[in-house]
């Protein structure tokens, strides 16, 4: 079973890298860009076939390690393939 974890800085935390990327996009002429938030993406491969267990375990992993809950939020997505 595979899961995807998306980690981004919380909306309340300023993202200097995202801001620089947004400015670069504006420089390229994409004047409709209002903001960019940069984040991290993890693909986790797991043993076991029960989706509910897998989701619970990956959520726990995100909480304990993949994200720092002080500054980051995360989203877990299960791949049913």
């Amino acid at each position: 079973m595979r899961a995807r974890v998306y980690v981004t800085l919380k909306p309340s935390v300023f993202d200097p890298q995202g801001r620089v990327v947004a400015d670069a996009l504006l420089s390229l002429g994409y004047e409709d860009v209002k903001d960019v938030r940069q984040g991290k993406f993890f693909e986790v491969e797991l043993d076991g076939g029960d989706p509910a267990t897998a989701e619970a375990r990956v959520t726990e992993m995100a909480e304990k390690l993949l994200a720092n809950p002080v500054i980051e939020s995360y989203r877990v997505e299960l791949l049913r393939s």
């Binding site: 935390v13 993202d15 200097p16 620089v20 002080v70 500054i71």
Partner: peptide, 16 residues
């Protein structure tokens, strides 16, 4: 900070 011995976290410098 990451070990939880002090509160808070670090992010990138404001000007990168």
């Amino acid at each position: 900070l990451e070990a939880g011995l002090l509160p808070g976290a670090m992010v990138r410098n404001r000007d990168i």
